[in-house]
Design a protein around this nucleic acid. Structure first.
Lengths: 265, 265
DNA sequence: CGCGATTTGTTCGTATGTATC
DNA sequence: GGATACATACGAACAAATCGC
């Protein structure tokens, strides 16, 4: 029995429930959904309402209704995205995908806003390189990232007199060509390597969840009302100097995160 | 300008957007929302539609409309739940809450299903103690956890002949009284200490997001259609023997996770 | 092959909710 | 507040495709 609520159509709630059930493997045995009438009775709604839900899922490509046969499910597992000190996008997915591609949607130079400044530990207004990246796995949109790189590279210097670390600007424009590097390689790791960062570490990751915005609907091929996992991450070089702040939006029905704390202090 | 979409009422989408904006601190300066007419124009909708959205937010207690003054926002920050090798529920929230309480909703003994067996590394059917825990912070429901503890304690023994670790059952019923211990202390850490586990480590955490189920709506005081963050976690003792598997559901509009990878190998 | 049982697809009508003006 | 247009949900009936016997 499903509860009536204002503001969200019944068929959408039912579609969400069926989608979850499929993701959890509830219909792996049969390979298809129960008949519309059974579902309708189960949810306590009219068959038309269930049909509307199934139509939406069919639009998403999750199920396929065939007259006389039933509604066949196309089970698609969630990708598991591991988060660790050495998080790498492509490597992390590993065996889970055959083909992965990274598309550069947009690149620009802009001034650091308050949030970017806080994460990258630079003053507000510092020039940053911004990249917008869409990642697809086996043809399906997997994530949309916005990445910021500080253009003014700052190396750390030890000041014995002050007893603390001081930072000085040098190597300006360190990441000015990272958009081209990414365009050619399709990988952030490879692009960073071309910009003189052979290795980097994931310092901090913040995970939250929101409803899909129109932009997500368009970029990730979601349905309105879908859930988006938002990961904000800071990567640093081996000297703990911030080199990249990224906000990545994942479709929650295709991705989950795993944090293995094996070596964490 | 907001896009029309099927299945979700315009006023609900607008309510979601305003709620997010408040959470991000967009109105911290003014302390109140823009006038309804301004909002309506901004979203490209009728004023009545914005009023419906504000009425819903008022129902949630997020804003308060006052005739002649405007719509006052009651900013409520998200709690940040840090995940590390030493994740502790209460300690993790730290200064963010004044008062935190843990209620034992239910406790029972049951057999391990496939998922619990996989996480706890025990055979399916192994007797487990199950606890259902609701946590409130400053009066607001913060999470609902289901925790499983293996009743048969297994210690590791090194078998030189086989060259691998063997486990033997001993100390059965190790956690048989953990429900009473939790009832008295309101803390898992304290309850585990009473059961002879002075310290434990977070081995692995899996994070996903789903729509709120009727159970969540009831337990966590959510609105239907809200988002729930689901964390599945494995805790082990210092010898890496699994002692607890937990599935915790958090309201996504009140909680976010932070993974600091500082000491991770 | 036909037949019936099952299951999806379609078309009416009606009532209610949503959104605009 | 009232009028209007559209989306949502229900109910009943019938049509069309698939499957097993």
């Amino acid at each position: 029995m499903i509860e009536r609520q204002r503001g969200v159509a019944l068929w959408r709630q039912i579609a969400d429930r069926i989608r979850s059930a499929i993701a959890e493997g509830a219909y792996d045995g049969e390979g298809k959904l129960p008949p519309e009438l059974v579902l309708a009775e189960g949810f306590g709604v009219n068959r038309h309402t269930v049909r509307a839900a199934i139509a939406a899922l069919q639009q998403e490509g999750i199920v396929q209704a065939v007259q006389g046969r039933g509604t066949l499910v196309r089970r698609r597992d969630k990708y598991d995205f591991p988060i660790s000190r050495r998080t790498r996008f492509t490597e992390g997915l590993g065996d889970q995908v055959r083909d992965i591609e990274g598309l550069l949607l947009n690149a620009a130079t802009e001034s650091a806003n308050a949030e970017c400044a806080k994460w990258l530990d630079v003053p507000v207004g510092t020039p940053l390189k911004r990249l917008e990246v869409l990642r697809r796995a086996d043809g399906r949109a997997l994530s949309r990232s916005t990445l910021w790189f500080p253009l003014e590279h700052r190396t750390e210097k030890w000041e014995p007199g002050f007893g603390k670390i001081r930072r000085e600007n040098n190597e300006p424009e360190r990441f000015s060509a990272i958009d081209d590097a990414f365009r050619q390689t399709g990988s952030i790791t490879a692009a960073l390597a071309r910009c003189g960062v052979p290795d980097y570490l994931r310092q901090c990751t913040e995970i939250s969840a929101v409803h899909a915005e129109p932009q997500d609907v368009a970029d990730l091929g979601l349905t309105p009302g879908a859930i988006v996992l938002v990961a904000k991450a800071l990567n640093t070089d081996l000297q703990s100097v911030p080199i990249q702040f990224a906000v990545t939006r994942f479709p929650a029905d295709r991705v989950q995160f795993t944090i293995r704390s094996d070596g964490l202090s």
